[in-house]
Every structure is written in C-alpha cells, then in structure tokens.
Computed example of a mutant assay.
Amino acid sequence: MDLRFETTVSSPAELADYDLVVVADGSNSLLRDSFAKDFGPSTDTATAKFVWFGTTYMFEGLTFVYKQSEHGAFAVHGYPVDEEKSTFIVEADPETWRAAGLDEFDVSRPPARAMRRPSATSQSCSRTRSAAHRCWRTTPGGGTSAPAGELVEPT
C-alpha cells in the first residue's frame, strides 16, 4: 500500500495507476473541476458575515456557542490551533451584523476597548465535538464574562 499525504497533483492523468484516491484540496479543486460531469458538484453562496480571531485563551476542543442578543443571533465556534493559541469565529446573518454596527467596523484598527474572555465556571454550557463541555457565565445584561482580572486587551 502506497499512502501519500500533502501531494500536489497537476493533472488527473497522474492518478491513473491508483485504485483509490482521496482528495481534500479545497473549494477550487483541480480534480473536482476535472470530473465535474461525473461528480455533479454544486455551489451555494452563503450570506453569513463573520470575523475570525486568534487568542491565547485555550479552548478544550471544538466549541460552539449560540447567543441571542438585542441585535439578533450570533454563533461562535472556537478551537485550539496549537499548544498556546486558539482561534474563534463570530458569525451572524447580514441583518444582525448591521444592527450590531459591525458593518461600520474599521478592520485596519483593533477595537478600542478590552474584550472579555469566556468563563469555564458557569450555568450555560455547549457540547463540543469531543463530548466535553465548555461553559460561559451569562451576566445580568445578557453578555458573557470571565472572573475579575481576565480581560483580554486587543493587540
């Protein structure tokens, strides 16, 4: 058995001698395009708006949080990317995005105020893919907060 990973293929002809090929080369796939008639792929363009952050806060696994705000619903998904950093994505429909004023955000400058970290000590929990739980403390105003001293200053 000949297993190959992270191998660039320039033409489907390069794969002629293989019995099984598993391809994971993204949305602009050379092979998917080459065999479009056989595979019948389709594309939907989503309208969701999102922002992608990096943080030193360590998520324990893939974590989903859904929050209804006065502007609409927000979805957050976060996960660790290495031993010291995580990434998290905040997503909303276009109406919620605009109602929250995020369409006016200047992406060339960091936010002026500190953002609060999630807390792992509270009532509202979401299931993660690994069946672990991640909890967020909900404040009386409906936001999420962390224990005192856990502010994250934008960099």
Rank of each mutant, 00 (worst) to 15 (best):
F88W: 13
G26K: 04
P80N: 04
D44A: 10
Y79K: 07
E84F: 07
T138M: 15
D33H: 13
D44I: 06
F50K: 12
G143N: 15
M58D: 00
E84R: 12
S42G: 13
E95C: 11
E83K: 05
A92C: 08
V9L: 08
G143V: 08
S124F: 11
V51P: 15
E153R: 02
K37N: 13
T128W: 04
T43S: 03
F105Y: 12
H77Y: 14
D25I: 11
T56E: 05
P41F: 00
A146V: 03
R129L: 09
P80M: 02
A146W: 00
T87I: 14
W97C: 01
H71W: 07
L3K: 12
A114V: 12
Q68K: 15
R98F: 06
E60T: 11
A148R: 11
T63F: 01
K85N: 12
A131N: 09
F53Q: 00
T87D: 02
T56I: 02
T7V: 12
A131K: 05
N28T: 04
W136Q: 09
A112K: 10
T138Y: 10
A132K: 11
D82P: 00
Y66A: 10
L151A: 07
D19M: 05
G141E: 14
V22Q: 08
P12G: 04
F53H: 07
P118I: 08
P12N: 06
A112E: 13
P110M: 06
Y79E: 08
A92Q: 05
T63K: 01
T43N: 01
L30Q: 11
T139W: 08
P94F: 03
P12R: 03
Y18I: 07
Q123W: 13
T8N: 11
P110N: 10
A73F: 12
F105R: 09
Y66W: 10
G61Y: 00
P140N: 15
D25M: 15
T138R: 15
F64C: 06
T55S: 04
G54C: 07
F5V: 13
D2W: 10
E153L: 07
M58I: 00
E150H: 13
L31G: 05
E14A: 06
M115H: 04
D103Y: 03
D44M: 06
G54A: 14
C135P: 02
A75V: 12
R137C: 06
G142Y: 01
P110T: 07
G40I: 00
K49E: 13
V22M: 09
S86M: 00
S42H: 08
F59L: 01
C125H: 03
W52V: 09
G72K: 04
R134D: 02
E60P: 07
T55Q: 02
G72M: 12
P154F: 00
G142M: 02
D33Y: 06
A146H: 04
C135S: 10
S126C: 11
P80S: 14
A46F: 09
P12S: 03
G54Q: 14
L20S: 14
M58F: 00
R98N: 12
V9D: 01
E95R: 09
P140K: 10
T138D: 09
